[in-house]
Design a protein around this nucleic acid. Structure first.
Lengths: 203, 203
DNA sequence: ATTATATATGAACAGTTGTTAATTTAAACT
DNA sequence: AGTTTAAATTAACAACTGTTCATATATAAT
């Protein structure tokens, strides 16, 4: 038990926690090292015992942005796709969980704040957030087509249509929650999307 | 001819132009008044003869974010909706034009950069960018349903589905262009979306 | 107890930030 | 001409930035 996962409350962990909260609210430039330090009751110079510099703090924080809880391996996709609607429903449900999960929400905010300021994040957004999900969904739709569960067409386009709405809902929810506004109007939007979408593709 | 529209090349106009370019690339905090001034060859203190402060420059620049070129009045919606696919096609086409228009692109980037840093922008995003468009589209779909041009359903949901994909495409295009990457893969995405969507709703 | 190691502090650094004031330069009006 | 008005410059301000370094204070190992 020397791997320090979960979560020795070391100064380093406290720094990361405070930095996460601040970066995901004010962005990289809007967060000063003094602010991070004062948040956990130390002076800014003490940070440099734990991190080389501000950027390294950010890098460690932003590592978590793309550690997605969905893991669909090829076999799983095949199994689930045969169930038709349940496949996209499960996918959307996991997406919804991420949307309302506290830590994932922070990571998503951070991503949105820094998306146009950080080239690497943009590239990861494209590959991890977009391409990866489109691929999973497209494979699912392809299998559904083979089994005549959905009308035929370009599975990539279908996947694109499906994911884009999920993303849009997530963005809206994130913005509302950022202002502590009610998300009641959107609370069933994920489900409505699944229902609508399935109606539009089922054979 | 004393209204100074179009575009007396005054210092004030030059400031706004330079500020627009900088804000839409580096954001509000990432743009200094010295940088704006040097861009047009004056000292920073001279800015204060034309604007009260930095924030006022930003406010004047960001005014243009929501001046949308689409204007669909109620009569126009009615007329166009009766044409079915041509309605959504026209809508998407105008959205595409905005996406690739140089100035609109800057405004959209600025919006995305500041979305989580500026509460008023968030609210305008919701009302001007989302609600307004959903309303127009939902009215169109409602009329189409009445005339049995599309399958029946909730026109608001239909509108939501349609607009969310347009937004997602625009975001992707904007990110690619920001890095001077090719948007070839997305160049026909708007049209594909219209085709796919129409297929999925037409009766 | 003594040494070694890890972590904290206070002070200072060199830059940058937005903004103001006094002053000079340029343009417009009488 | 001279006088008023507008727009530029130089200089400075106080506050804040990330980072370094010498020093002090704990904790752990011998």
């Amino acid at each position: 038990m020397n791997t320090q996962h979960h979560k020795k409350n070391t100064t380093k962990q406290k720094i990361l926690k405070a930095a996460t909260a601040l970066f995901s609210e004010y962005g990289y430039k809007g967060t000063s090292v003094r602010k991070i330090a004062s948040e956990i009751g130390i002076k800014q110079s003490a940070l440099y015992n734990h991190f080389k510099n501000k950027e390294n703090i950010f890098l460690e924080v932003s590592k978590d942005i793309f550690t997605t809880p969905f893991s669909f391996d090829d076999e799983e996709i095949k199994q689930n796709a045969l169930k038709g609607k349940a496949f996209i429903s499960k996918f959307a449900q996991q997406y919804k969980l991420l949307t309302f999960d506290k830590n994932s929400e922070k990571m998503f905010r951070l991503l949105m704040i820094e998306l146009l300021q950080n080239r690497e994040l943009r590239e990861q957004f494209m590959s991890e957030f977009h391409d990866k999900n489109v691929k999973i969904l497209a494979e699912g739709f392809f299998i559904m087509m083979q089994n005549s569960l959905v009308r035929s067409g370009d599975p990539m386009i279908m996947a694109y249509e499906f994911i884009s709405t999920l993303f849009y809902i997530r963005l809206q929810v994130t913005l509302l929650r950022f202002d502590s506004k009610s998300t009641d109007m959107l609370s069933t939007q994920f489900e409505k999307h699944v229902d609508y979408f399935w109606e539009s593709i089922k054979v």
